[in-house]
């Protein structure tokens, strides 16, 4: 995914949204993630324009000015086209990330990591970390209730950012203590059932490879090949419509 070829990015972005649709993820589940990525994308574009208003010119080698804005900032076709590529890149990657995070079963992921040669201890700690996120969220909620009951203002706009940060930090103390207890229990439970005894282990959630798996690997390889091919054809990462 090093390419900035506009045509390829457009195709990938469309595909990403198709995959998202196929995954049957409910919009309400990933709304927050979507907003987050959208805000990030807007911010990224603003900053690019702010710090490097003519970056497109240096990439594409031509300069077609549309209008003068203010100070050193101009509206330039090349810059607009470059930033269009940035937007497309976001649109092509974020849906895929969201689909991965919300449809991958942590245990199956761990088993897969292990199969491609990652040590099962590391694979398992990744899976456990994913598994404990909801638990820790619940715990955080409980703790925040207890603190608010004693007058700690959490979301109040009356307070300075610094004070709000300090208040949030005072909830970390109980959160860390209870997480440590949790770690002790799980570590004991795992050891009592033989975790770490052998160099390798098997996986109850292991899935045999099916046609669809092979197909998706082939599609991924093809997409990679396409992006490399475009690099070669364009003589660089960018597709240049200005020459």
């Amino acid at each position: 995914m090093t390419t900035f070829d506009t045509r390829l990015l457009a195709v990938l972005a469309v595909l990403a949204f198709v995959v998202m649709g196929l995954s049957r993820i409910r919009v309400s589940e990933v709304k927050v993630l979507f907003w987050f990525s959208f805000v990030f994308m807007v911010l990224n574009n603003l900053l690019i324009f702010l710090f490097s208003p003519e970056h497109g010119v240096s990439i594409y080698g031509t300069r077609h000015e549309i209008a003068h804005l203010f100070l050193r900032y101009n509206l330039v076709q090349e810059q607009l086209f470059y930033q269009l590529n940035v937007v497309l890149k976001y649109l092509a990657t974020f849906p895929v990330v969201i689909v991965f995070v919300s449809t991958t079963n942590p245990s199956e992921f761990a088993s897969a990591l292990n199969r491609i040669g990652v040590s099962y201890r590391i694979a398992y700690s990744v899976s456990l970390a994913l598994r404990y996120i909801p638990d820790i969220q619940r715990e955080y909620h409980e703790i925040s209730i207890a603190q608010q009951a004693r007058g700690l203002e959490m979301a109040s706009r009356k307070q300075s950012l610094f004070k709000r940060l300090r208040n949030a930090a005072s909830m970390l103390f109980p959160l860390i203590i209870s997480s440590m207890n949790r770690i002790e229990v799980i570590a004991n439970a795992m050891e009592l059932r033989g975790f770490g005894k052998e160099k390798r282990r098997t996986w109850y959630s292991a899935r045999p490879f099916r046609v669809a798996d092979y197909a998706s690997i082939i599609i991924c390889v093809l997409m990679l090949a396409a992006s490399i091919l475009m690099n070669v054809l364009n003589g660089g990462r960018y597709f240049n419509p200005f020459v």
């Binding site: 059932r193 005894k197 282990r201 109850y204």
Partner: peptide, 13 residues
């Protein structure tokens, strides 16, 4: 879990 750590084959597990 204990069977996995014993490298028990999937079917038997």
């Amino acid at each position: 879990f204990a069977l996995e750590n014993d490298r028990t084959p999937l079917e038997e597990m």
